[in-house]
Design a protein around this nucleic acid. Sequence first.
DNA 1: TTGAAAGCGCTAACAT
DNA 2: ATGTTAGCGCTTTCAA
Lengths: 338, 338
Amino acid sequence: MRPTMKDIAQKTGLSVTTVSLALNNKPANIPPRTRELVLNAARELGYRPNKLAAGLRGKCTNTLGLILPDIRNVFFSSLCKGAEDACREMGWNVILCNTSDSHRRDMEYIQILADRSVDGILYCISSDSTLLQAQESCKLLGSLSMPFVLLDRDAGIAGCDLVLTDHRQGGFLGARHLLFLGHRHIALVTGPSHLNGCKQRLDGVKRAYEDAGIVFDPALVYEGNFRLESGEASVDFLLNKKISAVFAFNDMMAYGIYKGLRRRGLRVPRDLSVIGYDDVFPSDIVGVPLTSVRQPVYEMGKAGARRMISRIQQPQILCETKLLSPVLVLRESTAPFK
Amino acid sequence: MRPTMKDIAQKTGLSVTTVSLALNNKPANIPPRTRELVLNAARELGYRPNKLAAGLRGKCTNTLGLILPDIRNVFFSSLCKGAEDACREMGWNVILCNTSDSHRRDMEYIQILADRSVDGILYCISSDSTLLQAQESCKLLGSLSMPFVLLDRDAGIAGCDLVLTDHRQGGFLGARHLLFLGHRHIALVTGPSHLNGCKQRLDGVKRAYEDAGIVFDPALVYEGNFRLESGEASVDFLLNKKISAVFAFNDMMAYGIYKGLRRRGLRVPRDLSVIGYDDVFPSDIVGVPLTSVRQPVYEMGKAGARRMISRIQQPQILCETKLLSPVLVLRESTAPFK
DNA sequence: TTGAAAGCGCTAACAT
DNA sequence: ATGTTAGCGCTTTCAA
């Protein structure tokens, strides 16, 4: 059996209280000699605190729940790694929950994590959630008095912490780069238009256009669904327009565009400049490395976890939205307009 | 505050014991009427059991630890998803631990997970571990009486459960396919030769050669390190040999070979047939979709978690090595020999 | 059929 | 400076 504080107490002839006080560096007047005594006994016995017992008694389990759609998606696994790294550095652990993008499972996992007394939840709202459902999950979290930080998805929930990429800036950076290269007729392959992230990217694009004195043309917008197929499907649309460049609102669709162009014997960037968004895939496995607006996903996970732990330790701090800056990563899929 | 059993006891006028017995369907003779009474009260109060308390008192926390090198690697995130899915189905949860392939961190996390009273650990040994170090981790697990299942990596540890791909069969399948296409001079770009997984792939390749009456030529073997760069670096070697096909022991190196060939203006499969191993990347984002030997990674995670839970529930069952069958996935990077 | 009581390992108010 | 005591929420023996 694992040694407990009781064993240390027995071995030293002290009480369990003194042992607890000494081991936890509590501001009781434990004289150095006694502390030494306890610490030595603990070392000799190979004592390790039982986190379950400490969690049950005290207020804190040092555990976070992480709810996300699917860890197989590199976006979320990077987020997760960031969160876990931050937690490890601070002595916390992470319980991982995959929802398969189902709101029902969001709700289930919130309950389960509360049952397990996690101290807080890092929450990527499942994308099948309506605004109402997102509010419902957050209400559940509230009714459980469970602190949480929303990651990546801005569902328009007020009064909570939020960490995500500044998509307005992201859209701006992507568009500005194409404009800088001399492109004047640029198509957009967006994601679902009701998503805040897409609206903001679009805003950013428009701002870049304004700066350059270009008129935004809604006829050059193709609404995709973030999947490769929709990028591929957009190619027919693209080739019917007089454009020299396309900005895809994620990399998957950019690769779909690659595929559609390839099938038609067209080349990137010779025939069309392509820029993506996210930059989560290893870029060197594809023939023409993709220029892309990188979301700092790992950092997002880290920032989210840190924020969560801060909030747990100081519940009174004000809610904030943390916008992380995207970075334009130049590769070979964009070329100057000729 | 969350309602507890005490609250249910108060509300029903029964004792906490009876409540516990009724809620947990224990084989005490609780008459249906009493149980109803308890269940109703529980529902009305919105009672949810406190898993921390149950874990502290009882023997089981229904929690597994999952130790792996880096969740950002799609191989491990698929494994993780499989494990988590299996756990969810059975009412278990997963604490995720990334080791960055460092043995020291393996050891640390084993301790931490034990401190948290997980019931078992799914363990992907970090690849920087020597055989001795792998044995050390397993010894630590043993000394903590912590049940565990090794995943993916066969470090030659005896007396424990192990779930991994049948790499002998994988090597066989890949080589047989190339032979079937008429290739007779085939290069291998392997991983580090001391790894069991590589040895077994090589064995499988040799067996396929024997079946076809081909002599294995060690001069056609290039030892890579599983990274893209080493695949790319192998191309000089490959082009100096009289070969028509190459079998890379993972996909990353296969993509490195793609890259090296592309740079030299050579085409896959026209100039060289290429077959990979793992099949974890989305194959449709690359120009020439890669033929590859697929490891059933998701299933591996699932099988591992199931095995772990079985062992926890029946500690006496015999240890077993579960070999999962790889699958040859035909795509466009291999062509008949001309 | 039900309940009292002990205890899992720990923390913390209170006492000495 | 240290110990006594109570209790976190639950399970489980033992007794009634």
